[in-house]
Design a protein around this nucleic acid. Structure first.
Lengths: 122, 122
DNA sequence: GTCATTACTTACAAATTTGTATGTACCATA
DNA sequence: TATGGTACATACAAATTTGTAAGTAATGAC
């Protein structure tokens, strides 16, 4: 959260993109990990370690960063249990639950068109 | 398209993400511009310059790069007319058209939840 | 012969995102 | 006293994405 040049093109474009409903939504789930994390949390609460196992090569740093960002955006609720060793559970907020049907459709698109792609080079 | 270390975590994660239907689809429309470009092209053919006007601060370089990537992914069809000055038109492919209803839903999510956000700090 | 128009391209640089490696805190158990 | 387990944090570095600035090609209008 360090300061960035106001009125750089980068910032102006970011502003433009945040004002548009479509890109506002897209940004919430953008990046490499957010959408899959939300999808995995779709059905159930998961602990940090359980989530990590879902993605074989994710680093703890990345998982932490993404979860924090999702928490900031109120898409994920984080619950810390005062135990040793620590236990932390993550679950979707109502706002995030509304994404799930959209994920289904994206997934269907992916399934269909990935198959077509494979067909391309037969 | 320069070579990248095989088996770096970056590449392994990329592979993982490309194999998942959901992230396969998400990647096609990821980044700052692709989703809005596709959305603008939803209804109609547009020339390069027309598209540019839709996004006040996009640079020509970015627009070109994104359009080329979309063309590569067969989401956009590019038609060049042999005229001077040049005329180039862009339009969605059938594959891309299937994204449009999803964009509508994302947009609806954005509209709703952006409004809630505004309400937060009253 | 200069300028305007359109759709780019290129070399370079800044900003952001992602990854690497190591360390921390707590308590229980050996 | 050392080790294991969990969920992180931190300093640093690499990779990718985005932006800056300038230039190109063709032709018609002036």
């Amino acid at each position: 959260m360090t300061a960035r040049k106001e009125n750089s093109t980068y910032t102006l474009n970011e502003k433009f993109i945040t004002e548009c409903d479509l890109t506002y939504a897209a940004n919430k789930i953008g990046g490499r990990w957010k959408i899959v994390i939300l999808d995995k949390l779709g059905n159930r609460k998961l602990r940090f370690g359980e989530l990590k196992k879902e993605f074989p090569y994710i680093t703890e740093r990345m998982l932490t960063l993404q979860l924090r960002a999702l928490e900031q955006d109120e898409l994920v609720k984080r619950t810390v249990y005062a135990e040793i060793p620590p236990r932390v559970e993550y679950e979707l907020t109502p706002m995030a639950l509304e994404f799930l049907p959209i994920f289904c459709q994206l997934s269907a698109w992916g399934k269909k068109n990935k198959a077509l792609k494979r067909g391309d080079h037969i």
